[in-house]
Structures are given as C-alpha cells and as structure tokens.
Amino acid sequence: MKKNYKIRTEKLNLFYGDVQALVDINMNVEYNRITALIGPSGCGKSTYLRTLNRMNDLIASVKIDGTVYYDDTDIYKDYDVIELRKRIGMVFQKPNPFPMSVYDNVAYGPRVHGIRKKEELDSIVEKSIKAAAVWDEVADRLHQPALGLSGGQQQRLCIARVLAVEPDVILMDEPTSALDPISTAKIEDLLDQLKKKYTIIIVTHNMQQAGRISDYTGFFLNGILIEMGTTKDIFFNPQDKRTEDYISGRFG
C-alpha cells in the first residue's frame, strides 16, 4: 500500500526566466514531523519551500513544472491559492510584524478569513499567542504596537499570527537566523511543542539546529535534492559523497 504523506512533490522544476533554480525535486514530507532543509546559500531550499504554498506566484518570471501534492491534492491545479495558504502557513526569516498592535497582528489572519466576532477573535488570539509561547511576555501589552517588542518576541508573535489561521503545515524560512541565541532556544522549544499538532518544514543554515530539532532532513545543492532521509541517517550515515562533504563542513 502506498504510504500517505502530508506533502509530496514529483519532478518539480522551477525556472526564474531562463535560469533553472530547482531540478526534478521528488520529496515526501511526513505527518506531524519536523523536516529540515539544509544546503549552501542559493541551493534552492528557500525557493523550494516557497513553492509549497505558492508564494512564488507573486514573482511574474517564475515558471513551475511538475506537481506538488498536499494531502494528495495537486496544489497548482485543484487548489485555490488563498485556501492553500490558509492551510500551509509560513514564517519568514526576519520577524515582520505589521505596524499595528500585537492583538491586531494576530487577529489579522482570522479577520481576512471572515471572523468578525470579538469574543471569537479574543479567544483565537489568546490561544495562538499561548501556543506560540509568548503569552507571558505580551499579555499586558496586547494593544501596544507590535514593533515595540524584542526581535525574539516579534518572531514568536509572527508564529502566533500564523497559528491563528489554524494551518496544519507550517513552513519556516530560517526563522531564527536574525535572532539571538536565547530567543533561538525559545523558538526551538516551541517547535518541539508545535510538531504534535503541525507538520513543520524548516529551512535552516544552522546545521546544529537541523540536527537538534528535526526528524527528517533534506540536503539541497545547486537546485537538486541530493539526499533525503531521517536526520540521524543524513548526519551520521550519509549515502552521497556531497552530503558527507557538506555535513563535515567542506562546503563552508
């Protein structure tokens, strides 16, 4: 019997104009696990991540070939992009709270999806902020500008903002690279909590991080998925020479 995956990509090719950025990517992502994507800069891992909730649609010159399945549905054919992004949330590299209050930031998503009742919003906001483990720090300043929070708080707020839309997959594009070690540790703890409910795909530069938090790891190089497996296998028993080189630090 064919195993069910949360996300599958088959023969995914992506071009920026004439430049091919992704080559024949085949990848399966397991339910409620953390999958880390690693590789040197410009290897295509972020680009790949962005194809999973069709963020690349925003760039006019991008052409995509191949299929991406989400719960066995082709997201480029049978899915409405808005619906898709609601299910597959994304956290970006730099925390980017909107220039409004903490509350409004988190309530933004539910609001654009039609929730207007105050009590409902209140409970969603509280639940999401608590789930993002930042409630203790912002509970007393929900109605102050989110730009006043520290970088780590801002990033967890952005996670809360994603959670408020109630997705079941969260894509994270180097979510801790702009943060200090303490904030990073907090977010890593948070991820461990979140994976009980969500499927998480995280792009990271930091190999230690990938090793610490992920269950599966994929290694990208020059737009090609070189190797994919359990994190343990990739780090301690890589099949490909290039993976081994990268893991042991030869690519810098």
């Binding site: 992004r85 949330g89 730099k94 909107f98 933004y108 998503g109 654009v112 839309v165």
Partner: peptide, 11 residues
C-alpha cells in the same frame, strides 16, 4: 515583507 507575510496568511 509585509505583502509576503499577508499573502502567506492567506489574505
């Protein structure tokens, strides 16, 4: 980034 974040939330 504001645009991207908002789109990513399904707006």
């Amino acid at each position: 980034a504001y645009r991207e974040e908002s789109f990513a939330l399904g707006a």
